[in-house]
Design a protein around this nucleic acid. Structure first.
Length: 360
DNA sequence: ACCCGCGTATAGCCGGGTAG
DNA sequence: CTACCCGGCTATACGCGGGT
């Protein structure tokens, strides 16, 4: 049963599906995609598209279709631009309450935050995008210290409150823009509709999953998660497994399964793992410590075969091309040709040749 | 009186990018 | 090459309230 959950998640997640054609369709399907590491997050989108390249994903950021901000769990995610405001509004209050103490530690009072908001507003007004170090310098110039995560926290706070969001990169630098200038304001979603909408997105791109998974992913309370599920129940299907109730969106359940048995080289922090509180369906307990060494919140890039995490991979990007190192937890020699295909697919995404591939 | 589910708060941890 | 910073997940503890 858990195996079938894994294989069906491959489809719901858009990893084994061939229905998605643009970066924004991928992000819409998943609802939001964790993006702690920028380059890995681009690949998280790319791996769900049959032949996308890294520049295609970045173009969709430039075209304001998708953007980076900090909704679910207060963690950085790709979201559809039009979804950014209501998602933040739904998730921010709990996160902001939790960050009160952190703000005190950093000596960030209301006045400092409002001064920073004004400084950013004046600098960014008129559709400007400004890199992170330059924004930090602007604060420093006004006597607001940015060292020791203070500056980062201000960027995070002002993003949480839907004032700024990330813009396209300039070279290797993150930039920030005013959210209201970057994306026109849509209609406001009342809390109940937002919960329903989030539940629909979540199960559309993550099913089968429990209400605990949903609550964890969104960073909302179980009670709210249940309200969301209740509201869209009629469009979900439910099943019992492992003594729990799993929900999925109806649309994906019909039809023949695509090639769920392929090999996938998923990025670190991919929704396939991060999207659930309980990762048991795709990750065997004894392998978990290798994916998150030291339980430190860092998720390594994984090799997924037949829906199961069976190893790690690592890429090094050099001028001439890409080196890929693989570390399989099990002897799976017969799958090596498929792994090579997956590695070549990744290199096409990166628009660089595969220079070497090594098995540890 | 006790259990259990739920929500909140806090400490600890470290891979990888980047600057120097 | 080295040092530093970024970033957020997990474990753990604890308080609360409803059900038995």
């Amino acid at each position: 049963m858990t195996e079938s959950i894994a294989l069906r998640r491959l489809i719901h997640q858009g990893i084994a599906s061939r229905k998605l054609e643009t970066p924004e369709q991928v992000v819409k399907k998943l609802g939001a995609m964790q993006a702690q590491d920028y380059h890995q997050a681009l690949w998280a989108i790319g791996t769900r598209l049959p032949s996308a390249t890294v520049s295609e994903i970045e173009r969709s950021i430039e075209d304001r279709k998708i953007l980076l901000t900090w909704p679910m769990r207060g963690t950085i995610h790709f979201v559809l631009s039009e979804d950014a405001r209501w998602m933040l509004k739904l998730t921010a209050s709990r996160i902001l309450a939790q960050s009160k103490r952190r703000q005190e530690q950093l000596g960030l009072d209301e006045r400092t935050i409002e001064r920073s908001r004004r400084i950013f507003h004046d600098a960014l007004q008129g559709d400007k995008r400004i890199s992170r170090p330059v924004l930090m310098q602007l604060l420093e110039d006004e006597g607001i210290g940015t060292a020791n995560q203070r500056g980062y926290h201000l960027l995070w706070y002002l993003s949480q409150t839907a004032f700024i969001c990330q813009g396209p990169r300039e070279g290797k630098q993150q930039t920030f823009v005013l959210l209201d200038e970057w994306v026109p304001r849509g209609k406001e979603l009342p809390m109940d509709e937002a919960l329903a909408s989030l539940a629909e997105s979540y199960y559309g791109g993550h099913g089968p999953a429990t209400v605990h998974d949903f609550a964890w992913w969104a960073g909302i309370t179980l009670a709210d998660a249940r309200r969301g599920v209740e509201a869209v129940k009629s469009r979900l299907v439910s099943e019992k497994a492992n003594g729990a109730e799993y929900w999925s969106s109806e649309s994906e359940t019909a039809g023949a399964a695509p090639n769920v048995t392929s090999v996938y080289l998923l990025p670190g922090f991919d929704e396939y793992l991060l999207g659930y509180k309980d990762r048991g369906a795709v990750l065997r307990e004894e392998y978990a410590p290798r994916i998150t060494p030291g339980n430190n919140g860092i998720f390594m890039p994984t090799i997924v075969i037949d829906g199961q995490v069976v190893g790690l991979w690592k890429r090094t990007v050099k001028k001439k091309g890409i080196d890929i190192e693989l570390n399989l937890f099990e002897p799976l020699d017969e799958r090596k040709p498929d792994i090579l295909v997956a590695a070549e697919r990744y290199c096409r995404f990166m628009e660089l040749p595969l220079v070497s591939i090594t098995f540890e």
